[in-house]
Design a protein around this nucleic acid. Sequence first.
RNA 1: GCCCCUGUAGCUCAGCUGGAUAGAGCAACGGCCUCCGGAGCCGUGGGUCGCCCGUUCGAAUCGGGCCAGGGGUACCA
Length: 548
Amino acid sequence: MRAKTYLREKLKDAIEKGGWSVEKEIELNNPKDPSWGDLTTNIALQIAPQRGGNSLKLAEKIAKGLSLASEVVEKVQVAGPGFINFFLAQGELLRSLQDIIDLGEEYGRCDLGGGKRVQVEFVSSNPTGPLTVGHGRQAALGDAVANLLEWVGYKVEREYYFNDVGNQMELLGRSLQARYEQLFDPSFPFPAEGYKGKYLVELAQKLREEKGEGLRGLPAEEAIPIFMNFASQRIIAGIKEDLERFGVSFDRWFRESTLHEEGKVRETIEILRGGGYIYEKEGAVWFNSSRLGDERDRVLIKGSGQPTYLATDIAYHLDKRRRGFDWVIDIWGADHWGHIPSMKAASQALGFPDGFLHYLVHQMVSFKKGGVELKMSTREGNFITLREMMVEIGKDVARFFYLTRGADSHLVFDLDLAKRESAENPAYYVQYAHARGCSIVEYAKDEGLTLGEGVDLSLLREPEELRLIRKLIWFPGIVEGAAKALEPHRLTVYLQDLASAFHLFYQRHRVVTEAEQLSKARLFLVHASLRVLRNGLRILGVSAPEKM
RNA sequence: GCCCCUGUAGCUCAGCUGGAUAGAGCAACGGCCUCCGGAGCCGUGGGUCGCCCGUUCGAAUCGGGCCAGGGGUACCA
């Protein structure tokens, strides 16, 4: 917003003219109470203690020293303990409103990122079973963060990393084998720790359709890879499909096995060894990560000769670094928290720049159904899939709901409530504002009214109109703030607020009336509102329907 | 034990990095369409911001100590 930079300069001049100094950027905020104007600064409160001065008097002095163009600022007011409040002139508001229509789909974008390459890695669930509602938060969060970064000028790649070899996969293979054998002989034993979900029974049936009895009684060395690959390929395909439905598409699906096949794990360990970070003890290869801030040292190669999860993950991140990203964001659930200090240590050991690797950790979601908290486990097979949720409450409601809360909050998702109240939940509230606006535009068209040239926006003077305009022009700032903080929920909260301002405007003022000029101006405001709603919802990955 | 996250209205959560009188949705109650979508709007009730100290002009926000819930502390991933 131009007014902000303009005011910052003017304030700085006025303050320095008075012989004071400003060390950091002057804060200009959107006050919560409209009677405090459009922009407010606490600068007097901040610098008054410099010389033990009175902040209220200083604020008055600063305000008096400002020479502001009346077409930008209508009124300056000193309030409370020393806030300086600015009321923008109507003309300034209207110029910003015009921007919304002029910029269209681009409105809200900026070039903060300067085209830097960022990778966002998220979901990355191993293909041991279908995606559950627990993964939904991660999918919604990661995709929204990626979208936000794109909007502020980064070049973003979305990546999904998954394990397609190793103990868990073998167990999966053995579980499928057992389910397959059980189709012929129900007494066939099921592995003690096996994956019990019914999805493996279904896969076994598919396998029987394709291969008949041909896979029965094979020796383990031969059977396990067959069953394992069949299971993981089918499950990954299902995960892809679910994510597509959820509106998330990845640029790359990274298989862990490639790291081993290309010798990258061994190579990484050799690099660490070269740096003096490796030693051997009790038949295992250790990383002395405690020297780099980790609680203790970590095993990289087990006594069995197998690399640990940490070893492959370090190799994976070295690979990311070599692919030339400027910034890498890993989105993880809080259950992986313990892994972070080790990876931070590895980042240092490998000489990654500070801040190259950023962890965005979100807290767990718990789910309630029938008033009871659910304990879900993929291994035990008792879970609700993401797909089931999409069928029940819809992708839009689910995504919006996941994003109404900050990543740091543990959230309780009451599935009955989400379904029962689906007609009254916040996602519909925002979408409804959009549909309603579209319907007004349709109606106006039928009455022969379209945007066209020569709209006199100065006719927009009602409080509800001005309030809506103010909310609309906050949008670019909200996007920027949400992107900087990696907090998409700020946008979700904002959109509800905006929808509320729109609904109130609608309720109080008829758009299409006999007064043609006023109707045109209001129609313009409706178009601008639709634009901001659409752009905002797009970032969240929620659709903006024209009809509901 | 140690580390991290959280504790705000009956419920689910915001609170813009220390600001002015703590907000929204749901739930409860009372109003609003002969008129562009009532999936909406307006109003009422509802709070020791877990508790105790501290920092300062000023604390839900920062620091310390308790209490409670969740997560993490593997040669698991």
